[in-house]
Design a protein around this nucleic acid. Structure first.
Lengths: 248, 248
DNA sequence: CGATGAGTTGAAACGTCTCAATCTACGTGG
DNA sequence: CCACGTAGATTGAGACGTTTCAACTCATCG
């Protein structure tokens, strides 16, 4: 059970509260109002602003920091064919980027802003150093990594749905849920990525995505107008996505 | 560049050396021959043996331990439809299971032996406790988690290849590489999972998998006889899988 | 040695992709 | 401020690949 009782924010423009940020868990163990918190603040709060189409980092860049999205959204991608890319994920406000690079030393994919985005940069060596000192930070770092693995698993499951319909439905349900978790509206939001990006991500042709959107609309599941989307019947959408398994 | 110069072991029956185990990294930071190592040993070395078809744990079970596969292989799966399952992964000797459950408290999927398998059980609370005390263990735990995230990313990429041919090729290349990393033969190994499992995992019908195997065989890429597989032309297989991108 | 489950193969049905034309929104420069 | 150019989105029709259904073979095991 998750709460989403706040007045839902607009994705575009609004920042996530630190409370809703994936990184916030790191703040909890340190005594609030303590010198420790100040220490953490000094490490984390470097802000970065990038505009639509600009890259945050590129595949192969030396790893030095994890990023938390404060506002806007980011897509990550990696070369596929000699002249195409594979979109590997979309990152929404409150979510993290770059954890996969921790042990590798270099980023595994490129990250590009889908719209103007602000981010918190967290230099990892400093954070790791803090973890060695402050009790509980280490524990939270593991929790965060584990959550990332679960997230990736869920994305994986999303891709496995056979049939374009189920995949797109799962994608929308997933987007809706992730936005809802951070206090945005679950029912109405902006698709910051193009149809082509969605298609690429899901392994579908952009035309198929487009057709499916209009089909979902005819079935009263959603309404889409350009980039704005409204979910009318989340339950049936989830059913299409293959959720609603056992009674659980 | 990875080395595989050892005499290649048989997958079936042979154990991975601790040296080749994902968990081994945890042993490095503690001074070898020290009292610490003994401590680690006491935590890790609970062995578990399960037979083909038996479950190591089930989705929803309370999380208490991470497992390392010593021999044999494990498949993980989760319910999909009301009466089908989705295979989420295969775990080979030296690989880990259950890291995703660290922050969740319960396992996210069920794990079943594809053949008789022996495992090391690592109670996580104890390990975490040790991490708080022994310098370096914490660091290695993060490295391991990060590696898991990268692994999941790679699996994700594998699924994204459009076209059954590319997906199956990528799957075989991936299997070959993972076995090679642990000192097994990259060219000749046993497919411990059924065609149906492979198909389910890749989002293909089992018949398609079967047809592709014979087709790959006709093209001299591999030879398959029942469960034993030999890779004849890894390079062309990688090409099919969509690797060989830029010159890098 | 028959039973059983896994694997293979064929033919038809279906779904998704590709190609191509059209349409829409948006940003740019006149 | 309007007009145009462009990139993204939509829609249609045919080609292609994968799934499904079904028959059959082959190994394994009681």
């Amino acid at each position: 059970m998750r709460r989403a009782s706040h007045e839902a924010k607009e994705l575009h423009g609004a920042n996530v509260d630190c409370k809703n940020c994936s990184m916030f868990a790191l703040c909890l163990p340190v005594g609030v109002g303590d010198a420790d918190l100040d220490l953490l603040e000094r490490i984390i709060k470097r802000r970065k602003l990038i505009r639509r189409g600009e890259d945050l980092f590129r595949r192969g860049d030396r790893f030095h920091a994890v990023y938390a999205v404060k506002s806007g959204s980011i897509k990550t991608f990696t070369p596929a064919d000699r002249k195409t890319v594979q979109v590997t994920g979309f990152h929404l406000p409150g979510e993290l980027l770059g954890l996969d690079a921790v042990g590798a030393g270099v980023y595994q994919y490129s990250a590009r802003a889908l719209e103007t985005a602000s981010l918190c940069e967290v230099p990892f060596d400093k954070l790791e150093g803090l973890g060695a000192i402050v009790h509980g930070v280490q524990r939270q770092m593991l929790r965060i990594m584990s959550a990332q693995i679960r997230h990736d698993l869920a994305m994986h499951a999303l891709h496995c749905k056979s049939g374009a319909e189920g995949r797109l439905a799962a994608f929308l349900v997933n987007l809706s849920a992730r936005l809802g978790e951070r206090g945005f509206s679950r029912a109405e939001f902006r698709l910051s990525m193009s149809r082509a990006d969605i298609g690429n991500y899901l392994g579908l042709a952009k035309e198929t995505v487009s057709r499916l959107f209009t089909q979902f609309q005819e079935r009263q599941l959603i309404s889409v107008k350009r980039k704005s989307l409204r979910v009318h019947d989340l339950y049936r959408l989830e059913a299409l996505a293959g959720l609603h398994l056992a009674g659980a």
